[in-house]
Design a protein around this nucleic acid. Sequence first.
DNA 1: GTCCAAAACTAGACCAAGTCTAACACAACT
DNA 2: AGTTGTGTTAGACTTGGTCTAGTTTTGGAC
Lengths: 132, 132
Amino acid sequence: MKEAVKLLRDSGIQLTPQRTAVVESVLESTTHPSADEVFEMARRKCPTVSRATVYNTLNLLVEKQVVRAQILREGTVVFDTNMKKHHHFIDDETGTIHDIPWESLEVRGEQRLDGFDVREYQVILRGRKKRT
Amino acid sequence: MKEAVKLLRDSGIQLTPQRTAVVESVLESTTHPSADEVFEMARRKCPTVSRATVYNTLNLLVEKQVVRAQILREGTVVFDTNMKKHHHFIDDETGTIHDIPWESLEVRGEQRLDGFDVREYQVILRGRKKRT
DNA sequence: GTCCAAAACTAGACCAAGTCTAACACAACT
DNA sequence: AGTTGTGTTAGACTTGGTCTAGTTTTGGAC
């Protein structure tokens, strides 16, 4: 949060009330919100913020590497505030997305793929979360 | 192809010219086509086929497990005719999707995830394909 | 403080992927 | 032939997202 603000300011980007609302909204959220969900949250903080500004700001955050855009749901991009490498588990029933720590899975062979230069990878798991 | 036709017929589904065009189109394609790409291919075989029929038929094929729907591209589902377990590599520059054989990667730990019942998983890799 | 240019914002138009609906076509059964 | 069910079509609709034109805000020069 603090660093995000700093990073944006250092990039010569003005921190307007609208942008602050968007940045706070997405960074506060513990789930993996879609742009529209961020829009709703931001609206509560700053009722005049427009959809365009939400999309612009989110794309700016992706560009500045404050959040990551992930393709995990049909039809919509979700935003991920966890910038550490990790995998994703998607609940079949609810569609909820859970972060899986990088260390809990071991993947081998990705540097030995013939003809492919792997820049990054992640495991996408699907199934059911056990209620505890 | 042959089995697909049989499977559909056995499920009590009439093989109309429109459906045949869709089934042939998707099964012939070596890439990972979107519904719209299938629509175009199918149109060439059967010019009267409508978008609705393409979507209906593709969803039918997914239901009958003739093809798989994959969330790999922003904004659109793609269809995968390779029903064997495999991973995916996405070229950063072209967006082209490549199948990676299941055996060329080794993943461990997915059954030991605390609180998660994993039904299926795959590795999504991104980077650049070397031109050979 | 005033003025100007640049940056930011908004509403709404637009676009693309996908679903839904109402009307029509056609087969199978009586 | 009439009825029922399955299939198809065009087009309306919905949703996620981008683009645009016009307005507001801001920061700097004076």
